[in-house]
């Protein structure tokens, strides 16, 4: 393998970024056309420019389809970037943003909200968010007691996540009526995504998203270990904690509304690493875009009018769409793969 210069890498990044942006833009437009009924491009353009006559069609496109597609886009962005950060932080290619037990924590939080009497439906995201963050705090506390280090952290996450899943199972089997609600929530879905969901999640997650992107250069240095970072004047522990908190808050903000959507955070960064190498400055933004594309396409299939069944969990589609593409890249370019 000939050593590629930084200029070549930067050039490749710009090309990929341009291609993915274009893909995202056209995908957004096509996705708004797709739903229970197909709308023609003219109708969609008409709605965007306020010339569409039917108020029902305007309500459907502006009230449901646009926020749904944008929420899928934003969630994909968050999961893709967070997955890349988490894999670097833990130096583990199998890590995804949920490795801290965040998913089971959020699910447990939602389950508690379902079971406790007098909690309105709109409070469920708050409980899910709190559950995810509490779980993270617990994992960080335990791994710190165990002397820090990525491995201790992963093991603590595994342990706490398993306990949360156990509690979740207890609630599901013992809570009669609420168990339906918990199971539906666990499926993960954009079926009721609204503008207010989107604004709330974006308001919470965006600052942390920007922070992670800004720190992508420092993240490259963390890979080489604490000593190396110290020589370059980076307080690696503080950075490590800050990044972990950022990604967990960003992911929790999305998960609280749409449930646990797996796989995007794992595979989107790997796809981009196979294409542009392991430099986080390039990998992270592109992973975000790739995550958004995978998630939008998955959701399009789930709500396509060609689908004779009811909506499937979007999480089942992300794997079906992402894995074949990932395997293709792995076979084609797996030789120069590196975290």
């Amino acid at each position: 393998m000939v050593e590629t210069t930084i200029r070549q890498k930067r050039y490749r990044f710009v090309v990929y970024a341009a291609v993915l942006s274009l893909a995202l833009l056209s995908l957004f437009f096509i996705s708004v056309m797709i739903g229970s009924v197909w709308f023609s491009p003219e109708t969609v353009v008409g709605v965007f420019f306020g010339t569409e006559g039917s108020s029902t069609i305007t309500s459907i496109i502006m009230g449901y389809r646009v926020p749904r597609v944008l929420f899928a886009l934003f969630t994909g962005l968050v999961l893709g970037i967070s997955g890349g950060v988490m894999q670097t932080l833990t130096r583990n290619p199998l890590a995804d943003p949920y490795i801290t037990g965040l998913a089971s924590g959020a699910a447990l939080g939602a389950a508690v909200a379902f079971v406790m009497p007098g909690i309105p439906l709109y409070a469920i995201p708050i409980f899910a968010f709190a559950g995810g963050i509490l779980m993270l705090m617990l994992v960080m506390f335990i791994s710190r007691k165990a002397g820090s280090g990525p491995l201790n952290f992963i093991l603590a996450g595994l342990a706490v996540g398993t306990v949360a899943s156990a509690f979740l199972m207890i609630i599901i089997t013992s809570a009669s009526n609420a168990s339906h609600g918990i199971l539906y929530w666990l499926y993960g879905s954009f079926s009721t995504s609204s503008w207010s969901d989107l604004w709330t999640a974006a308001f919470i997650a965006t600052p942390f998203l920007i922070f992670m992107l800004l720190k992508s250069r420092d993240l490259n240095i963390l890979i080489f270990g604490e000593d190396h970072a110290k020589q370059l004047g980076i307080n690696s522990h503080r950075l490590w904690v800050a990044l972990l908190l950022s990604l967990s808050i960003a992911v929790s903000a999305c998960v609280a509304f749409c449930g646990v959507i797996g796989f995007i955070g794992l595979v989107a960064p790997h796809i981009m690493r196979l294409l542009v190498g392991s430099d986080n400055r390039f990998v992270l933004p592109l992973s975000g875009m790739m995550g958004a594309i995978l998630l939008i396409v998955s959701d399009d299939i789930v709500r396509s009018p060609l689908n004779p069944l009811f909506e499937m969990p979007v999480g089942s589609m992300t794997a079906l769409i992402g894995v074949p593409f990932f395997i293709y890249l792995l076979i084609k370019r797996g030789k120069n793969f590196d975290l």
Binding site: G35, S36, V37, T56, S59, I60, G63, Y64, R65, R68, S176, N177, Y184, Y187, S189, S191, T192, R303, P308, L309, F310, E311
Partner: peptide, 25 residues
């Protein structure tokens, strides 16, 4: 559609039901 499953507000809006029945234990 067949069987049980999850729908969305957009579909309900398009199909415009005369009556909505919500049953919960």
């Amino acid at each position: 559609k067949s069987g049980w499953g999850v729908t969305n507000p957009e579909e309900i809006l398009l199909k415009n039901p005369d009556v909505v029945i919500f049953d919960t234990m």
